[in-house]
Design a protein around this nucleic acid. Structure first.
Lengths: 234, 234
DNA sequence: TATGTGACTTGAACGTGTTCAAAACTTTGC
DNA sequence: GCAAAGTTTTGAACACGTTCAAGTCACATA
């Protein structure tokens, strides 16, 4: 795996330069989207030479990754209060999903480009890559919290895999949202409403002892799939 | 939507040049993968000027799309014989899925790049885009054939949406395969085996009258999702 | 046969992400 | 205080996808 060039920051001044480049980049991403945010534009506004940006960030993709992380943190923060007080699983999941789209909303066009980069198996932004492992883990933990903090009674085996399943589900919703050109992304919200309803029902059905065989094979499949993910790119 | 520059071919000579560029491009894609297949390399080997390639193909992506179409045709052809003789739904789906991976296998690395391009909502290669509509339709038809040509008895409402569901499923498998670095893609094949088994079971469960409520809401969700897809980018 | 029209072809030029050798600066060891 | 080693910074240069004004060609029409 590629070592991040982040290790090359040894000085206080270096830290500052790095921060300045990053901040400028995020600003331009917001202002001008993906197109206007050329490495030259970022370097110029940050007051450094073009090459200097590459000293601190391997590539433009690494710079974009920082943006991604920021959005994720914002989503986490916006979910926290509700997860404190709400007990119903369906309501929890619904809130988390809606909050996610709301967080992402201002960057719809940008997210398309981001997703394009993330889709490359060799990109550090790829959600399945080793470099994304911390972010992925954090994201799955959020869904673990959604399930574990609810009042729903769920079989242990399902409880173990459900967070990962929901994480995959949320990736699917993001995928849909990226393609959703309806006004205010009404379709995505509708899809969330409907799919959360179904997931809630499915969890109930799957928790039924009569379904234990099918459930077990589905869970086993998921477990294997998950294991694969962490082994990919090794 | 962008009009294909294909309309600019009016002469026999033009047709030949176009074909030569395309053939050369496919050759280089195969030989050197995505990296080596620069527009300059393609133009040079095809014996035309760089700009000429752009006269016949809007962009490199359009050139790659031709490659994509070729792979799809190959997959179709390799499935046809089995779909003639086999009646069991599980066996049919399994065969189609395995054949797909086998067709794609020689281009694993290339497929990663292709997927990256296809992930951009604004790319003509995007599987949900208008420009991809014919290819998508064809692909969904394949799954319709898988279901309809089988001996399985399936409720009408499910029958209507199942092809699209299976198409989505197959996209998921491709996504996994792209990330699968196991030798001979053993994991992908295992995933296919397991997931086809589960899908088969799920279809049986969903066909049970007791499940009609859950089934109906899931189907309605799918129908809506599908409708959205065709409206995207309009 | 001349010539004009439209199809095709050319290659220089642009802006992009990225690399790299060299310069400038900062810290360390004495 | 100074040389050496380490760290940061620079900007020219590269290869790429893409554009475009200008050129060449084939053929229908006068």
């Amino acid at each position: 795996m590629t070592k991040g060039r982040t290790g090359l920051v040894k000085t206080d001044k270096g830290q500052q330069t790095r921060a300045a480049i990053l901040k400028t980049a995020l600003d331009i991403f917001r202002e001008q989207g993906y197109e206007g945010a050329t490495m030259r534009a970022i370097a110029e506004r940050a007051g450094v030479a073009l090459g200097n940006a590459y000293y601190y960030f391997h590539s433009k993709e690494h710079l974009i990754q920082a943006f991604y992380v920021e959005l994720h943190d914002e989503h986490l923060a916006s979910c926290a209060p509700l997860l404190e007080r709400e007990g119903d699983l369906k309501a929890r999941l619904l809130a988390v999903m809606r909050a996610m789209i709301k967080t992402l909303e201002p960057y719809h066009q940008f997210a398309g480009k981001l997703f394009k980069i993330a889709a490359d198996p060799h990109s550090p932004l790829n959600p399945f890559s080793d470099e994304s492992d911390p972010a992925r883990r954090q994201s799955i933990d959020l869904f673990r919290e959604v399930v574990a903090g609810s009042s729903a009674r769920i079989p242990k085996d399902l409880m173990l895999e459900l967070p990962y399943m929901l994480w995959l589900y949320h990736m699917g919703i993001v995928l849909f949202w990226i393609h959703d050109s309806s006004s205010r992304h009404a379709r995505t919200y509708r899809l969330i409403d409907r799919s959360v309803e179904i997931i809630d029902k499915l969890i109930r059905v799957a928790s039924n002892p009569l379904m234990s065989r099918l459930r077990k094979s589905a869970i086993r499949l998921m477990a294997e799939l998950r294991e694969d993910v962490s082994l990919v790119e090794s």
